[in-house]
C-alpha cells in the first residue's frame, strides 16, 4: 500500500485512480478525486496517469449559458470553409430563412481590452449576413433562439464520432422552434455519428423531443432522473409511454 499525503504542485493535472491487481491483470476501479487520506484503508494500489489517456472521444459541452465566445470562435474556425459550414447555415435558416452566412470579427465596440493579444483571442463575435440587408448584423441582435441554435449546432458538428452534452436544451429557444431544433439535432447527430445527451426541466422541451423521437424511434431514448435518498434513480420511458404522458397531461419531470 502506498500513500500520497501531499502531491507536488507540478502534479496538479494528474488524476488518481483506485486500481485492483488480480494476477497479471490490472483493473481501474474508479477515479479518486476526493481527499486522498480518506481512502487510506483500501488495500489496492493507487495509480496516476495523464488525463488525455482517459478519454478517447471527441466531445463538446453546451452549458446553460452557452459556450464562451472564445470557444465558439475557435470551433467556428474549424468549421468555416468545410462541408459542415453549410449544415450550420441551414440550421440557422430554421429560425430565419434570410441567413446566408456567418463570420467572426473583432468586436471594435469593445476597444478597451488590456492588450492586443487579449483582444484578438477573446473579442471575436459572430456576425450574420442577412439577405436583403447590406451590412452584416451581430448574431446576438437576431435573438436568443438563433444564438442558442448556433452554439448547439457548431458544437454538434465539432463532436463528430463523439459526444455532445447540452445542459438545459431549451435555454433561449422559443417553444415553437423546439421541435425543429430537435429535428435537426436528430438528423445531424445521426449523420455525423454524435451521441447527444441533453437535460431539461421544461415540458415544452420534452414535448418537442417526443414529437421528433416518434419520427426517429430508433434514435432516441428518454430517462427521468429522481433524487432518491442518496442515490439518483433513472426511470426509462418508451416513446409510447412518453407520448401518453404528454397527451394526457401527466407529469414526466
Amino acid at each position: 500500500m502506498e500513500i500520497f499525503d501531499n502531491f507536488d504542485e507540478d502534479l496538479s493535472d494528474i488524476e488518481v485512480f483506485l486500481i485492483a491487481e488480480e494476477g497479471d491483470r490490472t483493473r481501474r476501479l474508479f477515479r479518486l478525486d476526493r481527499d486522498v487520506r480518506s481512502i487510506r484503508r483500501t488495500s489496492s494500489r493507487m495509480l496516476y496517469e495523464r488525463q488525455e489517456a482517459e478519454f478517447k472521444y471527441t466531445w463538446q459541452v453546451v452549458s446553460t449559458t452557452n459556450m464562451p465566445n472564445r470557444k465558439l470562435a475557435a470551433l467556428w474556425d474549424l468549421t468555416s470553409l468545410t462541408d459542415l459550414e453549410s449544415e450550420v447555415i441551414a440550421a440557422l435558416r430554421l429560425i430565419d430563412e434570410r441567413v446566408s452566412g456567418v463570420a467572426f470579427v473583432e468586436d471594435v465596440s469593445r476597444g478597451n481590452a488590456s492588450n492586443f493579444r487579449d483582444r484578438e483571442i477573446d473579442n471575436r463575435i459572430p456576425l450574420v449576413k442577412i439577405k436583403g440587408i447590406d451590412e452584416p448584423l451581430p448574431l446576438k441582435s437576431m435573438g436568443d433562439s438563433i444564438t442558442r441554435l448556433f452554439h448547439v449546432i457548431v458544437a454538434l458538428v465539432n463532436a463528430r464520432n463523439g459526444l455532445l452534452l447540452i445542459d438545459e436544451f431549451e435555454n433561449g429557444l422559443h417553444w415553437s422552434v423546439q421541435p425543429k431544433v430537435w429535428n435537426i439535432v436528430f438528423q445531424l447527430s445521426e449523420r455525423l455519428n454524435v451521441q447527444v445527451f441533453a437535460t431539461t426541466h421544461s415540458r415544452d422541451c420534452i414535448e418537442g423531443f417526443d414529437s421528433t423521437w416518434n419520427k426517429y424511434p430508433e434514435l432516441g431514448t428518454f430517462f427521468r432522473l429522481d433524487a432518491k435518498d442518496t442515490f439518483i434513480k433513472a426511470t426509462e420511458y418508451t416513446s409510447e409511454t412518453l407520448t401518453d404522458a404528454i397527451d394526457m397531461d401527466v407529469e414526466v419531470r
Partner: peptide, 19 residues
C-alpha cells in the same frame, strides 16, 4: 374521467411511471 377508452389506457400507462 379520461374522455375515452383510449384515454383511460394512455393515462393508466403514464400514471404508473409518474413521479
Amino acid at each position: 374521467q379520461c374522455g375515452s377508452d383510449i384515454g383511460v389506457l394512455k393515462r393508466l400507462n403514464a400514471l404508473i411511471v409518474r413521479p
